[in-house]
Write a protein that binds this DNA or RNA. Sequence first.
DNA 1: GCTCGTATAAAAA
DNA 2: TTTTTATACGAGC
Length: 188
Amino acid sequence: MSISWVTVGTPLPSGPVRLAVTDLGVAACSFAGESVAGVPGRAGTPDCTDEARARTVAARLDEYFQGRSRTFALPIDWRFTSGPHRVVLQTLLAEVPYGATITYGELARRSGVFDDLAGVGGVAARAVGQMMGANPLALLVPCHRVVAADGLGGFGGGPLGMEIKRWLLTLEGVLPATLDWDGPDAAP
DNA sequence: GCTCGTATAAAAA
DNA sequence: TTTTTATACGAGC
């Protein structure tokens, strides 16, 4: 088993993304060329040696970013998630389709992982937010569709992360396009 | 190991 | 409307 890193150009404000691809599917994703915590192989790792696999991943992402595809249709390697974390991510993937959003609290409830805490205010919501932030599968699992109860919520990666989230939500039609929104055709 | 900072939400003032 | 308070998890020391 080996991990291959594939760099895929995107119209995102962050530029290209790097994805970790294994025999089982896509295992991780990083935005600004940064490494993903807990995932072997850093940003300096040579790119994928399996060109066929790399092409497939790149093509799928491209279709999504161009708006031609509503899903990535890529297998996901869940090895870097575990326990409740994995359950929440899989719930999100299963329950939230393209163009829809869910709040942190609602996702927590549906995942069933935080049943014991369900009645206690936003406790579970924070845990979910934390999991999203630690999620190595950003993009593959639609973390950007998870929003706060009264607004957009946040996103990892600082200000740049917010740009990415806003961009993705606009792409999916969740947010109205803004004047500075250039659409998928902008950028390299 | 221990401490600190979060991508929240709801109740109270 | 603003403030306060619970929770789990990962990173850093």
